[in-house]
Design a protein around this nucleic acid. Sequence first.
DNA 1: CGGGACATTGAAACGTCTCAAACGATGTGG
DNA 2: CCACATCGTTTGAGACGTTTCAATGTCCCG
Lengths: 219, 219
Amino acid sequence: MRPDEDGGHVRLNARQREQLMRIGTRLRLQPRMRLYEEGDEANAVYAITEGAVKSYRELPSGKRVVCAFLFERDLFGLAELGQYVNSAQAVTAGIAYRLPLEELARILKQDSELQFQFLMKVTHELRESHRRAVMINRKDAPGRLAMFIAMMHQRLSTGDHRVPLPMSRSDIAAFLGLSLESVCRAAADLERRNLVKFEGRHVAIITDPARLARLVATL
Amino acid sequence: MRPDEDGGHVRLNARQREQLMRIGTRLRLQPRMRLYEEGDEANAVYAITEGAVKSYRELPSGKRVVCAFLFERDLFGLAELGQYVNSAQAVTAGIAYRLPLEELARILKQDSELQFQFLMKVTHELRESHRRAVMINRKDAPGRLAMFIAMMHQRLSTGDHRVPLPMSRSDIAAFLGLSLESVCRAAADLERRNLVKFEGRHVAIITDPARLARLVATL
DNA sequence: CGGGACATTGAAACGTCTCAAACGATGTGG
DNA sequence: CCACATCGTTTGAGACGTTTCAATGTCCCG
């Protein structure tokens, strides 16, 4: 019952990939481009192959909660089958495939192996969501940000110690359940303690992996 | 592509239910009974038909984070396929079915309709997890507790305004990301404002549904 | 009846939030 | 080419609310 996994990322075989390509339409993502809005009728699922997307919820007060950041090989729009319950917006330029729900359902019912991969995928997202819950449980802003950076490092592994943070500080704040200002201060704090160094606003360099790891593990 | 849903709860047909019963073993849940531990090899999925279970993660510091409370018709143990990444413990007495992963996988591959129900179920859990994220985003303890009570009311609808809260205050705190004391104070606060009244520790009575709803919606 | 876990309440300390102001990059029009 | 407007970011100071620590109270089960 073990699928072809790689750090939680499901791998499709050539046939499956080709099958999806056939029903999907390629989408060129532009920064800030909206893919769907909360409340829209859900008629497609999306798969990213390049770039970054955020899934978020708009609150009556105008505040936002970012539920997840999605990157290459992620699937989204699946979490809500009648209507979308989140909105999705591109954070950077990139490429995504739009898979019409109708046809996708047909394929999934025929190819139980492929459907199983989808089940894996959602299961994995649920796991991620739980990790987020653990992260939010921390009370200290620097700790949360450290976990976030570690998470991004793991997800977007570059081999070295450079961690891309394509999203804005506000987005990070909306994801971590902090105010924008707290994120800034937390970043400054981590830098002051020589754990990470920021290169511009969208790259973090882990300067002391061991101590950062210790901070992350200090729950 | 719309499944037979009822407020997010997937309904299985008689054949499917019977199929699962055949491979499953009935489990009599006792309060505090452990179903599995984080790190154990995952060899079964569980379905509750009665009672309440919590899924939680133990942190190095000894603190706990409750990822979810599970009730009748919920499925759990699915979120982690190689090894369990959470622990699960019964909160009350009840009944659950243990579905061995091996046989379940066989059935799912044969019955793509049933597998689809499982996909729905996990998808629904992911949605729930997002709602939790929104709840945690609130900074005020009374607001969080109000949302929690509203959530429980919706999930365990009793028709009237009585809301069962089978779990302990600590569990609620571990779920909401608050300290035990804050939950108590929040409860006292809601009671002082005449929004809900507590009958013992495990029943909340919504005395002013309109104002409670307004507080819940004040995000 | 007593023990132990759970729950409640009080008082002080800490850290984030909010409000406000300055800073930096970016892009447009004079 | 520069002034200027705009957006996102950074930094500062005070207020608020939760956490923590500690003591007391309550329920449940042997």
